[in-house]
Design a protein around this nucleic acid. Structure first.
Length: 701
DNA sequence: CAGACGACATTTTTT
DNA sequence: ATGTCGTCTG
């Protein structure tokens, strides 16, 4: 079957043909460098843009959107797929700011959000229930738990993997298109004995989801692909609208995403993918940077454009990062040249006696930066693991420095928030049995079995909210009555969302106190934040899909509200820092075993990914960069042990960085048995920590 | 069958 | 420091 372009001229956009008369070319030629302009103005055909860190990738995409709009392309014919919705939002706003307001109306978002939107629209065509329920990760793990219990796999003499691990294994198998066994071999060799069982579990999990109209994150992508490939008519309806497609962060797409992109672009064949193979950091999620390398082979006639001028970082920072990334086993054919003025300081590698000193150093340095005129929001502390910043967070709190944290557990994934949302979900869709299960088990005396029985009743009942009509023992009748009454009150037409959440809170608040007695106050605070966040929504459906697909912004809530007067410092996992930049960047806990993660050191390809991760972290810095590590770090058994700095930094040429040793105030706090650097520094002592630059060079490292 | 208690292992990273 | 699993009791 041959494919040809046939452009439909629609009624509502007579100017659909490309038309240069409104194009203000000068805006583009004067504000973009030649390569960027080339990327912006090459609108037709397949285009691959290799964009190194800080080379104006976002700017290029932004201008390209604006350019297309000025050419008269209707916004709805443009699709911009990004990695986070924050990124899409930012690009669309910035594009609109260039003059054409309709830039804000292009189709944009993450693969998952896009898939979700399309599937809601086409569900009935492809045998899906239109009211399908989205499972986020904890939900999906709960379903797996349920299925596992049904299969009796929890009663093995040797330990069976936990539900979360099972989900990870199953998801990895799908996303990488490999059998369970190979996934186990590569990443979970200790569970290899259970390959058979996990495979069975996977099938049951799929069946369960299908039977109950549940979709997990992976399903969104696979179902979209199924729609595009097996339903030509509907597929064509979708793809024929997508005249220009841009995909950001292409190095972090996985197999199914690459296939989807291929399908989406089939009709018009105007596809630009942008990425940097040196910044691929999501292979754990099935991302494959080979997607980007294979692109030219798949589209032999594609245009390749390289952006190599870095507008972000000083040459000193780039010199260091260029050398760093060169340690990779698989090489990258790129070298970044800075366009920034030279003359600033070298990046610093900071060695702290222990984790607390590391935190104190950062606090002190942040305060100094603020004195020097760098606003807090232009300072970031990055870490490999979300928990690596716990100590620092305490110190920041003591010093009264406001901060936001990105990455790690999301507020919407906390148990009490999930409880609350479960009511909303049941209200939205009475056949959402996962949420029912949650709600019912909150009642006193109701456990898995009783909940299961009630759910069976709910499934076939025409009035699922009338729980007290189910055949149950006296024991829980009164609490079920209360629950029914609640839903009766909530389930009124035109009952505003704010009233719903108020009534719900009244009902749930006492339950929360009983369920989580230990840290009730903390959870209560979360809840308040969450309730105020709900105020921004008027539609329950919108709220719920946002919660599933874009919980990122919510995670920042808890800390942000406290300080209205000053924008906070940013704490972020490296993964969540992707695409962002700051004046000053600290990378903390740069220890071997943490970055690189100790789970990655055995496998060269995984080690390379850790290296790229560090590369991403360091290239976020514009002017100042500090790489810090504690010499003594706590292991989870509470004995201290000596720790080595990351292998990635121990071989860097010395002329590329300054070394700072932090000095302790007095020697009695030192741990006995620690030799090396700390022994050297008794010189000083007024401030708790003090920096010494490049001390005598016989220091061990 | 639910809930409490104690033992145990267990760590990335995100849509 | 945490969450999860297994066991015991009412």
């Amino acid at each position: 079957m041959g494919t040809r372009k046939y452009i439909i001229k629609t009624q509502d956009c007579p100017t659909s043909e490309i038309n240069q008369e409104h194009l203000n070319l000068k805006k583009y030629t004067s504000e973009l460098n030649p390569e960027q302009f080339n990327a912006v103005s090459t609108t037709e055909g397949y285009v691959l843009v290799i964009a190194g860190a800080g080379t104006g990738k976002t700017k290029t995409l932004t201008y390209r959107v604006s350019y297309l709009i000025e050419l008269g392309i209707p916004a709805w014919q443009i699709l911009l797929l990004t990695f986070t919705r924050r990124a899409a939002q930012e690009m669309m706003t910035r594009a609109a700011a260039l003059g054409q307001a309709s830039c804000a109306n292009i189709q944009g978002g993450t693969f998952h959000a896009f898939a979700h939107k399309i599937l809601r629209q086409y569900a009935h065509h492809i045998g899906l229930n239109e009211n399908f329920t989205m499972l986020d990760q904890p939900d999906a793990a709960d379903v797996i738990d349920l299925v596992r219990t049904e299969l009796g796999f929890n009663k093995k003499e040797k330990r069976f993997p936990k539900k979360k691990t099972l989900l990870q294994i199953i998801s990895a198998a799908r996303n990488k298109d490999l059998p369970i066994e190979l996934i186990l071999e590569a990443s979970y060799p200790h569970f290899l004995d259970y390959a058979q069982e996990i495979d069975t579990l996977k099938k049951s999990y799929d069946a369960y989801k299908r039977a109950n109209h549940l979709l997990d994150f992976d399903d969104l992508l696979f179902e979209l692909y199924r729609l595009l490939t097996q339903y030509p008519e509907q597929g064509h309806q979708i793809t024929s609208q997508l005249r220009y497609i841009m995909v950001d962060e292409y190095q972090d797409t996985n197999l199914i995403q690459a296939r989807i992109v291929g399908e989406l672009a089939k009709v018009h064949q105007n596809l630009m993918v942008v990425g940097d193979d040196a910044q691929s950091i999501y292979s754990f999620r099935g991302a494959n940077y080979k997607n980007i390398l294979d692109f030219p082979a798949q589209h032999p006639d594609c245009t390749i454009i390289k952006l190599e001028t870095n507008y972000r970082s000083t040459q000193q920072i780039l010199d260091l990062t260029n050398v760093l990334i060169n340690q990779a086993k698989e090489k990258f054919a790129k070298k970044l040249i800075s366009a920034s003025p030279v003359g600033s300081e070298l990046p610093a590698i900071v060695s702290a006696p222990n984790e607390q000193f590391q935190s104190q150093f950062i606090v002190q340095r942040i305060l100094e930066c603020r004195e020097e005129g760098t606003p807090l929001r232009d300072i970031a502390v990055l870490m490999r693991n979300s928990r690596d910043s716990f100590g620092l967070e305490l110190e920041l709190g003591k010093a009264n420095i406001p901060y936001v944290k990105y990455g790690g557990q999301k507020i919407v994934e906390a148990a009490h928030i999930k409880d609350f949302v479960a009511y909303l979900r049941v209200l939205n869709n009475p056949s959402d049995i996962i949420s029912w299960n949650r709600i019912l088990q909150l009642l006193d005396g109701v456990g898995p079995k009783t909940a299961g029985a009630l759910i069976e009743w709910i499934k076939q009942s025409p009035t699922p909210y009338q729980l007290n009509q189910a055949n149950v023992s006296q024991k829980y009748l009164s609490s079920l009555k209360a629950l029914s009454a609640l839903f009766d009150a909530l389930n009124q037409p035109d009952y505003p969302l704010s009233s719903i959440s108020d009534s719900l809170f009244k009902y749930y608040h006492p339950l929360m106190k009983i369920t989580y007695p230990d840290d009730f106050p903390k959870r209560e605070k979360d809840m308040e934040n969450f309730l105020s966040l709900i105020q921004n929504y008027t539609s329950l459906t919108d709220l719920l899909s946002d919660m599933a697909l874009d919980p990122v912004d919510l995670s920042a809530m808890e800390t942000i509200g406290m300080h209205k007067d000053e924008d906070p410092v940013v704490l972020s996992t490296i993964h969540s820092a992707k695409g962002l930049e700051w004046h000053t960047v600290f990378l903390i806990n740069t220890l071997d075993g943490i970055l690189p993660s100790r789970y990655a050191v055995l496998e060269p390809s995984q080690l390379d990914e850790e290296l790229r991760l560090m590369y991403v972290a360091l290239t976020r810095a514009k002017m100042e960069l500090y790489i810090t590590y504690p010499i003594v770090s706590k292991h989870h058994r509470d004995d201290n042990f000596m720790s080595n700095p990351s292998r990635f930094i121990s071989n860097l040429p010395e002329h590329l960085y300054d070394r700072l040793w932090l000095v302790m105030e007095s020697s009695h706090t030192r741990q006995p048995g620690i030799d090396g650097p700390t022994a050297k520094k008794q010189l000083s002592d007024k401030k708790p920590t003090e920096m010494i630059k490049n001390p005598s060079d016989d220091l061990p490292f």
